[in-house]
Amino acid sequence: MKKVIVSAVLCGGVLMGMTSGLTAQAADQLDGSTTIGADVTKGDITLKVDTETDFGSQPLSDVVDFGSKDISYTVTDYTGTTNGFELSAKVMDADEKRSLQIGDKELSETAQPVVTETNNVVGENTKTVSSVLKYTGIEKVQKYTSNIEWNLTKSTTKQISE
Rank of each mutant, 00 (worst) to 15 (best):
I5T: 06
I5R: 01
V6I: 15
S7D: 02
C11I: 15
G12F: 14
V14H: 00
L15R: 01
M16T: 01
M16H: 01
M18Q: 03
S20W: 00
G21W: 00
L22Q: 05
L22V: 12
Q25V: 15
Q25C: 09
Q25G: 12
L30Q: 07
D31S: 15
G32F: 11
G32V: 11
T34S: 01
T35E: 14
V40L: 15
T41A: 10
K42S: 13
D44F: 06
I45V: 15
I45A: 10
T46R: 04
K48D: 12
D50Q: 05
E52R: 07
E52P: 00
E52H: 06
T53M: 13
Q58H: 03
Q58Y: 02
L60V: 04
S61N: 08
S61I: 05
D62E: 14
D65C: 03
D70G: 08
D70Q: 12
S72M: 14
T74E: 12
T76D: 11
Y78Q: 14
Y78H: 11
T82A: 14
E86G: 06
S88E: 12
S88V: 05
A94I: 11
A94D: 10
K97T: 09
S99Q: 11
S99E: 11
L100G: 05
L100F: 09
G103H: 04
D104Q: 09
D104C: 03
D104E: 14
L107S: 05
S108D: 10
E109M: 14
T110G: 06
A111V: 11
Q112R: 02
P113K: 05
V114K: 08
V115N: 07
T116Y: 02
E117C: 07
T118W: 04
N119W: 10
N120T: 09
E124M: 09
E124R: 06
N125A: 02
N125T: 07
K127N: 14
T128F: 08
V129K: 06
S130C: 02
S131R: 00
S131F: 00
V132C: 00
L133Y: 11
K134P: 07
T136I: 11
T136F: 01
K140T: 15
K140Q: 14
V141M: 04
T145S: 12
I148L: 02
I148S: 02
E149Y: 02
W150R: 08
K154V: 15
K154G: 13
S155E: 13
S155D: 14
T156C: 00
T157C: 07
K158C: 01
Q159E: 13
I160Q: 06
